[in-house]
Design a protein around this nucleic acid. Structure first.
Lengths: 210, 210
DNA sequence: TTCCAAGTTGAAGATCTCTTCCGATTGAGG
DNA sequence: CCTCAATCGGAAGAGATCTTCAACTTGGAA
Protein backbone atom coordinates (compact mmCIF):
# COMPACT_ATOMS: atom_id res chain seq x y z
CA UNK A 1 0.00 0.00 0.00
CA UNK A 2 2.45 2.61 1.18
CA UNK A 3 5.01 3.54 -1.44
CA UNK A 4 8.56 2.27 -0.82
CA UNK A 5 9.49 5.93 -0.33
CA UNK A 6 12.96 6.34 -1.81
CA UNK A 7 15.48 7.66 0.70
CA UNK A 8 16.14 11.38 0.65
CA UNK A 9 19.34 12.88 -0.52
CA UNK A 10 21.70 13.63 2.33
CA UNK A 11 21.20 17.42 2.23
CA UNK A 12 17.46 17.00 1.91
CA UNK A 13 17.30 14.74 4.94
CA UNK A 14 19.37 17.21 6.93
CA UNK A 15 16.99 20.02 5.97
CA UNK A 16 14.02 17.89 6.86
CA UNK A 17 15.30 17.27 10.35
CA UNK A 18 16.22 20.92 10.73
CA UNK A 19 12.77 22.00 9.66
CA UNK A 20 11.12 19.56 12.05
CA UNK A 21 13.15 20.80 14.99
CA UNK A 22 12.54 24.41 14.07
CA UNK A 23 8.82 23.97 13.48
CA UNK A 24 8.42 22.09 16.74
CA UNK A 25 10.02 24.91 18.69
CA UNK A 26 7.96 27.59 17.02
CA UNK A 27 4.69 25.69 17.42
CA UNK A 28 5.44 24.89 21.03
CA UNK A 29 5.44 28.57 21.86
CA UNK A 30 3.21 30.09 19.21
CA UNK A 31 0.72 27.36 18.37
CA UNK A 32 -0.01 25.53 15.14
CA UNK A 33 -0.66 28.57 12.99
CA UNK A 34 2.94 29.62 12.49
CA UNK A 35 3.34 30.76 8.85
CA UNK A 36 5.49 28.54 6.67
CA UNK A 37 7.63 31.57 5.91
CA UNK A 38 8.53 31.99 9.58
CA UNK A 39 9.50 28.34 9.84
CA UNK A 40 11.65 28.58 6.72
CA UNK A 41 13.35 31.76 7.87
CA UNK A 42 14.05 30.36 11.35
CA UNK A 43 15.50 27.22 9.80
CA UNK A 44 17.51 29.20 7.27
CA UNK A 45 15.90 27.55 4.25
CA UNK A 46 13.57 28.80 1.56
CA UNK A 47 9.83 28.36 1.68
CA UNK A 48 9.99 26.09 -1.29
CA UNK A 49 11.91 23.58 0.78
CA UNK A 50 9.17 23.47 3.38
CA UNK A 51 6.50 23.01 0.74
CA UNK A 52 8.46 20.34 -1.07
CA UNK A 53 8.80 18.25 2.06
CA UNK A 54 5.42 19.02 3.62
CA UNK A 55 2.99 19.98 0.87
CA UNK A 56 0.07 20.04 3.29
CA UNK A 57 0.26 21.44 6.78
CA UNK A 58 -1.18 18.13 7.95
CA UNK A 59 1.93 16.38 6.66
CA UNK A 60 4.05 18.61 8.85
CA UNK A 61 1.79 18.19 11.87
CA UNK A 62 1.77 14.42 11.52
CA UNK A 63 5.55 14.26 11.24
CA UNK A 64 5.93 16.61 14.19
CA UNK A 65 3.47 15.25 16.66
CA UNK A 66 2.68 11.62 15.90
CA UNK A 67 5.23 10.31 18.36
CA UNK A 68 3.94 12.60 21.09
CA UNK A 69 0.44 11.43 20.31
CA UNK A 70 1.60 7.83 20.60
CA UNK A 71 2.95 8.73 24.00
CA UNK A 72 -0.47 9.97 25.05
CA UNK A 73 -2.09 6.82 23.71
CA UNK A 74 0.40 4.92 25.82
CA UNK A 75 -0.74 6.88 28.86
CA UNK A 76 -4.32 5.86 28.15
CA UNK A 77 -3.34 2.22 27.89
CA UNK A 78 -1.34 2.33 31.06
CA UNK A 79 -4.17 4.11 32.84
CA UNK A 80 -6.69 1.53 31.70
CA UNK A 81 -4.65 -1.16 33.43
CA UNK A 82 -4.68 0.76 36.68
CA UNK A 83 -6.34 -1.17 39.46
CA UNK A 84 -8.06 1.89 40.89
CA UNK A 85 -10.22 3.21 38.06
CA UNK A 86 -10.52 6.73 39.44
CA UNK A 87 -6.80 6.94 40.04
CA UNK A 88 -6.28 5.78 36.47
CA UNK A 89 -8.55 8.47 35.10
CA UNK A 90 -6.98 11.30 37.04
CA UNK A 91 -3.50 10.04 36.27
CA UNK A 92 -4.26 9.93 32.56
CA UNK A 93 -5.83 13.36 32.41
CA UNK A 94 -2.96 14.91 34.32
CA UNK A 95 -0.30 13.22 32.16
CA UNK A 96 -2.03 14.35 29.00
CA UNK A 97 -2.31 17.93 30.22
CA UNK A 98 1.30 17.97 31.34
CA UNK A 99 2.32 17.09 27.81
CA UNK A 100 0.12 19.85 26.46
CA UNK A 101 1.63 22.28 28.92
CA UNK A 102 4.97 21.71 27.24
CA UNK A 103 3.67 22.55 23.79
CA UNK A 104 0.91 24.92 22.94
CA UNK A 105 0.75 23.39 19.48
CA UNK A 106 0.23 19.88 20.75
CA UNK A 107 -2.52 21.12 23.02
CA UNK A 108 -4.30 22.73 20.11
CA UNK A 109 -4.02 19.47 18.22
CA UNK A 110 -5.23 17.19 21.00
CA UNK A 111 -8.08 19.49 21.93
CA UNK A 112 -9.26 19.93 18.38
CA UNK A 113 -8.98 23.67 18.24
CA UNK A 114 -7.76 23.29 14.68
CA UNK A 115 -8.61 20.94 11.89
CA UNK A 116 -8.03 17.53 13.39
CA UNK A 117 -5.40 15.45 11.67
CA UNK A 118 -6.29 11.92 10.74
CA UNK A 119 -3.66 10.87 13.26
CA UNK A 120 -5.48 12.74 16.02
CA UNK A 121 -8.82 11.31 15.04
CA UNK A 122 -7.46 7.80 15.22
CA UNK A 123 -5.84 8.54 18.56
CA UNK A 124 -9.14 9.57 20.05
CA UNK A 125 -10.84 6.54 18.55
CA UNK A 126 -8.24 4.46 20.29
CA UNK A 127 -8.40 6.22 23.66
CA UNK A 128 -12.12 6.78 24.05
CA UNK A 129 -13.00 3.12 24.68
CA UNK A 130 -10.23 2.89 27.25
CA UNK A 131 -11.56 5.95 29.06
CA UNK A 132 -15.09 4.59 28.79
CA UNK A 133 -13.95 1.39 30.44
CA UNK A 134 -12.33 3.27 33.28
CA UNK A 135 -15.45 5.36 33.75
CA UNK A 136 -17.64 2.27 33.92
CA UNK A 137 -15.40 0.76 36.54
CA UNK A 138 -15.25 4.00 38.50
CA UNK A 139 -19.02 4.35 38.47
CA UNK A 140 -19.47 0.77 39.65
CA UNK A 141 -16.93 1.41 42.39
CA UNK A 142 -18.88 4.45 43.49
CA UNK A 143 -15.99 6.75 42.62
CA UNK A 144 -17.97 8.59 39.96
CA UNK A 145 -21.66 9.49 39.89
CA UNK A 146 -23.91 7.51 37.59
CA UNK A 147 -24.33 9.15 34.23
CA UNK A 148 -20.70 10.11 33.76
CA UNK A 149 -19.58 9.65 30.16
CA UNK A 150 -16.39 9.96 28.12
CA UNK A 151 -17.80 13.23 26.82
CA UNK A 152 -17.66 14.58 30.37
CA UNK A 153 -13.96 13.85 30.53
CA UNK A 154 -13.47 15.34 27.09
CA UNK A 155 -15.26 18.45 28.32
CA UNK A 156 -13.07 18.52 31.43
CA UNK A 157 -10.05 18.21 29.18
CA UNK A 158 -11.21 21.15 27.08
CA UNK A 159 -12.03 23.17 30.19
CA UNK A 160 -8.67 22.76 31.88
CA UNK A 161 -6.98 23.31 28.54
CA UNK A 162 -8.75 26.62 28.10
CA UNK A 163 -7.38 27.82 31.42
CA UNK A 164 -3.96 26.59 30.39
CA UNK A 165 -4.10 28.54 27.16
CA UNK A 166 -5.41 31.65 28.83
CA UNK A 167 -2.81 31.63 31.59
CA UNK A 168 0.27 30.07 30.00
CA UNK A 169 2.01 33.42 29.65
CA UNK A 170 1.66 34.68 33.21
CA UNK A 171 0.74 31.71 35.44
CA UNK A 172 2.05 28.52 33.84
CA UNK A 173 0.92 26.33 36.70
CA UNK A 174 -2.60 27.63 37.11
CA UNK A 175 -4.06 24.79 35.05
CA UNK A 176 -3.34 22.36 37.88
CA UNK A 177 -5.71 24.26 40.11
CA UNK A 178 -8.32 24.17 37.36
CA UNK A 179 -7.73 20.45 37.02
CA UNK A 180 -8.44 19.93 40.71
CA UNK A 181 -11.68 21.84 40.27
CA UNK A 182 -12.69 19.85 37.21
CA UNK A 183 -11.92 16.50 38.81
CA UNK A 184 -13.68 17.34 42.04
CA UNK A 185 -16.59 18.51 39.94
CA UNK A 186 -16.82 15.26 38.02
CA UNK A 187 -16.97 13.39 41.31
CA UNK A 188 -19.63 15.53 42.90
CA UNK A 189 -21.78 16.99 40.14
CA UNK A 190 -25.16 15.64 39.23
CA UNK A 191 -24.55 13.98 35.87
CA UNK A 192 -27.74 11.98 35.75
CA UNK A 193 -29.75 14.23 33.42
CA UNK A 194 -29.63 14.60 29.63
CA UNK A 195 -26.55 12.49 28.91
CA UNK A 196 -24.43 13.94 26.09
CA UNK A 197 -25.08 12.30 22.76
CA UNK A 198 -22.58 9.63 21.71
CA UNK A 199 -21.24 11.79 18.92
CA UNK A 200 -20.68 14.83 21.13
CA UNK A 201 -17.22 13.64 21.99
CA UNK A 202 -16.22 13.47 18.33
CA UNK A 203 -17.49 16.96 17.71
CA UNK A 204 -15.79 18.29 20.82
CA UNK A 205 -12.43 17.08 19.61
CA UNK A 206 -12.85 17.32 15.87
CA UNK A 207 -14.95 20.34 15.15
CA UNK A 208 -13.43 22.86 12.81
CA UNK A 209 -15.55 25.82 13.93
CA UNK A 210 -12.14 27.16 14.81
CA UNK B 1 -15.20 66.74 28.70
CA UNK B 2 -17.13 64.77 26.13
CA UNK B 3 -17.89 66.77 23.02
CA UNK B 4 -21.52 67.89 22.62
CA UNK B 5 -21.67 65.45 19.69
CA UNK B 6 -23.86 67.11 17.08
CA UNK B 7 -26.85 64.98 16.12
CA UNK B 8 -26.50 62.87 13.02
CA UNK B 9 -28.35 63.59 9.84
CA UNK B 10 -31.47 61.53 9.53
CA UNK B 11 -30.14 59.16 6.87
CA UNK B 12 -26.89 58.76 8.77
CA UNK B 13 -28.70 57.87 11.96
CA UNK B 14 -30.80 55.35 10.09
CA UNK B 15 -27.68 53.74 8.65
CA UNK B 16 -26.07 53.70 12.06
CA UNK B 17 -28.96 51.79 13.57
CA UNK B 18 -29.05 49.45 10.61
CA UNK B 19 -25.36 48.75 10.93
CA UNK B 20 -25.67 48.10 14.65
CA UNK B 21 -28.50 45.63 14.17
CA UNK B 22 -26.68 43.90 11.34
CA UNK B 23 -23.35 43.73 13.14
CA UNK B 24 -25.02 42.40 16.26
CA UNK B 25 -26.64 39.57 14.36
CA UNK B 26 -23.45 38.64 12.54
CA UNK B 27 -21.32 38.76 15.68
CA UNK B 28 -23.85 36.75 17.63
CA UNK B 29 -23.38 33.83 15.29
CA UNK B 30 -19.87 34.32 13.96
CA UNK B 31 -17.98 36.04 16.77
CA UNK B 32 -16.29 39.41 16.94
CA UNK B 33 -14.00 38.97 13.97
CA UNK B 34 -16.57 39.55 11.26
CA UNK B 35 -14.91 41.61 8.48
CA UNK B 36 -16.23 45.13 8.07
CA UNK B 37 -16.97 44.31 4.46
CA UNK B 38 -19.38 41.55 5.46
CA UNK B 39 -21.18 43.86 7.84
CA UNK B 40 -21.46 46.52 5.16
CA UNK B 41 -22.72 44.10 2.56
CA UNK B 42 -25.27 42.56 4.91
CA UNK B 43 -26.51 46.02 5.83
CA UNK B 44 -26.54 47.14 2.20
CA UNK B 45 -24.14 50.02 2.73
CA UNK B 46 -20.60 50.69 1.61
CA UNK B 47 -17.60 49.94 3.77
CA UNK B 48 -16.83 53.62 3.99
CA UNK B 49 -20.03 54.13 5.94
CA UNK B 50 -18.99 51.61 8.56
CA UNK B 51 -15.57 53.24 8.90
CA UNK B 52 -17.03 56.73 9.10
CA UNK B 53 -19.28 55.78 11.98
CA UNK B 54 -16.98 53.33 13.75
CA UNK B 55 -13.37 54.19 12.87
CA UNK B 56 -12.03 51.67 15.35
CA UNK B 57 -13.52 48.24 15.88
CA UNK B 58 -13.64 49.10 19.56
CA UNK B 59 -16.08 51.90 18.78
CA UNK B 60 -18.38 49.38 17.19
CA UNK B 61 -18.01 46.86 19.99
CA UNK B 62 -18.72 49.48 22.63
CA UNK B 63 -21.83 50.69 20.83
CA UNK B 64 -23.00 47.12 20.30
CA UNK B 65 -22.40 45.55 23.65
CA UNK B 66 -22.24 48.20 26.35
CA UNK B 67 -25.88 47.79 27.28
CA UNK B 68 -25.52 44.03 27.47
CA UNK B 69 -22.49 44.49 29.66
CA UNK B 70 -24.47 46.80 31.90
CA UNK B 71 -27.01 44.03 32.20
CA UNK B 72 -24.33 41.66 33.39
CA UNK B 73 -23.07 44.23 35.88
CA UNK B 74 -26.65 44.46 37.11
CA UNK B 75 -26.65 40.69 37.61
CA UNK B 76 -23.53 40.99 39.75
CA UNK B 77 -25.11 43.70 41.86
CA UNK B 78 -28.29 41.75 42.30
CA UNK B 79 -26.32 38.63 43.17
CA UNK B 80 -24.26 40.49 45.75
CA UNK B 81 -27.46 41.37 47.58
CA UNK B 82 -28.51 37.74 47.71
CA UNK B 83 -28.90 36.49 51.22
CA UNK B 84 -27.38 33.10 50.47
CA UNK B 85 -23.89 33.85 49.18
CA UNK B 86 -23.43 30.58 47.33
CA UNK B 87 -26.81 30.89 45.70
CA UNK B 88 -25.84 34.39 44.63
CA UNK B 89 -22.60 33.18 43.07
CA UNK B 90 -24.19 30.36 41.13
CA UNK B 91 -27.08 32.54 40.04
CA UNK B 92 -24.69 35.18 38.75
CA UNK B 93 -22.46 32.79 36.87
CA UNK B 94 -25.43 31.09 35.27
CA UNK B 95 -27.06 34.38 34.22
CA UNK B 96 -23.80 35.61 32.73
CA UNK B 97 -23.29 32.42 30.77
CA UNK B 98 -26.88 32.43 29.56
CA UNK B 99 -26.29 35.85 28.08
CA UNK B 100 -23.12 34.60 26.44
CA UNK B 101 -24.98 31.61 25.06
CA UNK B 102 -27.16 34.03 23.13
CA UNK B 103 -24.20 35.75 21.50
CA UNK B 104 -20.90 34.24 20.65
CA UNK B 105 -19.48 37.72 20.23
CA UNK B 106 -20.49 38.85 23.68
CA UNK B 107 -18.95 35.72 25.13
CA UNK B 108 -15.66 36.46 23.41
CA UNK B 109 -15.78 39.96 24.79
CA UNK B 110 -16.62 39.03 28.37
CA UNK B 111 -14.11 36.23 28.46
CA UNK B 112 -11.31 38.32 27.01
CA UNK B 113 -10.59 36.15 24.01
CA UNK B 114 -10.03 39.33 22.06
CA UNK B 115 -8.54 42.66 22.89
CA UNK B 116 -10.57 43.81 25.86
CA UNK B 117 -12.47 47.00 25.36
CA UNK B 118 -12.12 49.70 27.97
CA UNK B 119 -15.80 49.10 28.68
CA UNK B 120 -15.12 45.45 29.46
CA UNK B 121 -12.17 46.26 31.66
CA UNK B 122 -14.27 48.65 33.70
CA UNK B 123 -17.05 46.11 33.95
CA UNK B 124 -14.70 43.55 35.46
CA UNK B 125 -13.28 46.15 37.83
CA UNK B 126 -16.81 46.77 38.95
CA UNK B 127 -17.85 43.14 39.31
CA UNK B 128 -14.76 41.60 40.84
CA UNK B 129 -15.20 43.19 44.28
CA UNK B 130 -18.82 42.10 44.33
CA UNK B 131 -17.82 38.53 43.54
CA UNK B 132 -15.03 38.73 46.10
CA UNK B 133 -17.55 39.77 48.73
CA UNK B 134 -19.82 36.87 47.88
CA UNK B 135 -16.90 34.47 48.03
CA UNK B 136 -15.87 35.74 51.46
CA UNK B 137 -19.37 35.28 52.73
CA UNK B 138 -19.65 31.83 51.17
CA UNK B 139 -16.36 30.72 52.70
CA UNK B 140 -17.41 31.96 56.13
CA UNK B 141 -20.70 30.14 55.72
CA UNK B 142 -18.83 26.95 54.90
CA UNK B 143 -20.33 26.87 51.42
CA UNK B 144 -16.94 27.22 49.73
CA UNK B 145 -13.56 25.83 50.79
CA UNK B 146 -11.04 28.23 52.26
CA UNK B 147 -8.69 29.62 49.64
CA UNK B 148 -11.32 30.24 46.99
CA UNK B 149 -10.65 33.47 45.11
CA UNK B 150 -12.31 35.57 42.42
CA UNK B 151 -9.72 34.15 40.04
CA UNK B 152 -11.19 30.71 40.63
CA UNK B 153 -14.56 31.93 39.49
CA UNK B 154 -12.99 33.68 36.54
CA UNK B 155 -11.33 30.40 35.65
CA UNK B 156 -14.63 28.56 36.02
CA UNK B 157 -16.20 31.15 33.76
CA UNK B 158 -13.50 30.60 31.14
CA UNK B 159 -13.80 26.84 31.49
CA UNK B 160 -17.54 26.66 30.98
CA UNK B 161 -17.26 29.20 28.20
CA UNK B 162 -14.76 27.04 26.37
CA UNK B 163 -17.20 24.14 26.38
CA UNK B 164 -19.91 26.50 25.20
CA UNK B 165 -17.78 27.66 22.29
CA UNK B 166 -16.70 24.16 21.38
CA UNK B 167 -20.22 22.74 21.46
CA UNK B 168 -22.47 25.61 20.41
CA UNK B 169 -22.95 24.20 16.93
CA UNK B 170 -24.03 20.69 17.85
CA UNK B 171 -25.04 20.67 21.53
CA UNK B 172 -26.16 24.17 22.51
CA UNK B 173 -27.10 23.14 26.02
CA UNK B 174 -24.00 21.18 26.92
CA UNK B 175 -22.48 24.13 28.77
CA UNK B 176 -25.01 23.72 31.57
CA UNK B 177 -23.60 20.30 32.32
CA UNK B 178 -20.11 21.77 32.34
CA UNK B 179 -21.35 24.49 34.67
CA UNK B 180 -22.64 21.89 37.11
CA UNK B 181 -19.22 20.25 37.04
CA UNK B 182 -17.39 23.53 37.57
CA UNK B 183 -19.61 24.61 40.44
CA UNK B 184 -19.44 21.26 42.17
CA UNK B 185 -15.69 21.40 41.70
CA UNK B 186 -15.39 24.79 43.31
CA UNK B 187 -17.27 23.47 46.32
CA UNK B 188 -15.26 20.31 46.73
CA UNK B 189 -11.78 20.95 45.38
CA UNK B 190 -8.81 21.65 47.56
CA UNK B 191 -8.13 25.33 46.93
CA UNK B 192 -5.84 25.90 49.86
CA UNK B 193 -2.50 25.75 48.07
CA UNK B 194 -0.71 28.38 45.94
CA UNK B 195 -3.49 30.97 45.74
CA UNK B 196 -3.59 32.67 42.33
CA UNK B 197 -1.86 36.00 42.28
CA UNK B 198 -4.11 39.03 42.59
CA UNK B 199 -3.39 40.08 39.03
CA UNK B 200 -4.17 36.69 37.54
CA UNK B 201 -7.80 37.63 37.19
CA UNK B 202 -6.94 40.70 35.11
CA UNK B 203 -4.72 38.68 32.83
CA UNK B 204 -7.32 35.94 32.50
CA UNK B 205 -9.88 38.41 31.23
CA UNK B 206 -7.68 40.93 29.49
CA UNK B 207 -4.84 39.10 27.90
CA UNK B 208 -4.44 39.59 24.20
CA UNK B 209 -2.44 36.44 23.55
CA UNK B 210 -5.55 35.64 21.57
C1' DT C 1 -35.37 76.33 -4.90
C1' DT C 2 -30.50 76.69 -3.87
C1' DC C 3 -26.52 75.37 -1.68
C1' DC C 4 -23.07 72.97 0.93
C1' DA C 5 -21.57 70.39 4.80
C1' DA C 6 -22.41 65.87 5.98
C1' DG C 7 -22.76 61.57 4.19
C1' DT C 8 -21.98 57.66 0.90
C1' DT C 9 -19.62 54.61 -2.14
C1' DG C 10 -16.45 51.39 -3.92
C1' DA C 11 -12.05 51.35 -6.04
C1' DA C 12 -7.29 51.12 -4.76
C1' DG C 13 -3.09 50.62 -2.08
C1' DA C 14 -1.12 48.16 1.91
C1' DT C 15 -0.43 43.79 4.61
C1' DC C 16 -0.31 39.22 5.48
C1' DT C 17 -0.21 34.53 4.30
C1' DC C 18 -0.66 30.77 0.98
C1' DT C 19 1.01 28.41 -2.88
C1' DT C 20 3.26 27.77 -7.21
C1' DC C 21 7.07 27.79 -10.18
C1' DC C 22 11.37 28.22 -12.63
C1' DG C 23 16.18 29.17 -12.82
C1' DA C 24 20.18 27.94 -10.13
C1' DT C 25 22.54 24.51 -7.29
C1' DT C 26 24.26 20.04 -5.77
C1' DG C 27 24.68 15.08 -4.18
C1' DA C 28 25.91 10.84 -5.87
C1' DG C 29 26.12 7.19 -9.39
C1' DG C 30 28.83 6.15 -13.54
C1' DC D 1 35.45 14.25 -13.40
C1' DC D 2 30.58 14.38 -15.59
C1' DT D 3 25.96 14.40 -15.64
C1' DC D 4 21.35 14.97 -14.23
C1' DA D 5 17.55 14.18 -11.31
C1' DA D 6 16.63 15.83 -6.93
C1' DT D 7 16.74 19.78 -4.38
C1' DC D 8 16.84 24.60 -3.23
C1' DG D 9 15.63 29.57 -3.04
C1' DG D 10 12.81 33.23 -3.28
C1' DA D 11 10.16 36.03 -6.52
C1' DA D 12 5.48 36.40 -7.90
C1' DG D 13 0.49 35.74 -8.35
C1' DA D 14 -3.68 34.88 -5.65
C1' DG D 15 -6.97 35.64 -1.93
C1' DA D 16 -8.42 37.79 2.28
C1' DT D 17 -8.92 41.80 5.07
C1' DC D 18 -7.78 46.52 6.53
C1' DT D 19 -7.91 51.29 5.70
C1' DT D 20 -7.92 55.48 3.04
C1' DC D 21 -9.76 58.64 -0.17
C1' DA D 22 -11.53 61.31 -4.07
C1' DA D 23 -15.67 61.83 -6.53
C1' DC D 24 -20.48 61.70 -6.14
C1' DT D 25 -25.09 62.28 -3.52
C1' DT D 26 -28.36 64.28 -0.37
C1' DG D 27 -30.76 66.20 3.88
C1' DG D 28 -32.22 70.26 5.51
C1' DA D 29 -31.32 75.21 6.56
C1' DA D 30 -31.90 79.70 4.36
Amino acid sequence: MTEPAPPLRRDAERNRQLLLRTAYELMASRGLDVPYEDIARAAGTGMGTVYRRFPQRQDLLDALFSEHIDTVIGFAEEASRHEDAWAGLTWFLERQLEVEAQSRGLGELLRGRNQATEVVRRAHERMTPLVAGLIDRAVRAGQLPAGATPADFAAAHVMVGSVMDASRAFAPGLWRRALRVALAGLCHADLSGDPPDEVVIDHLYNDQTK
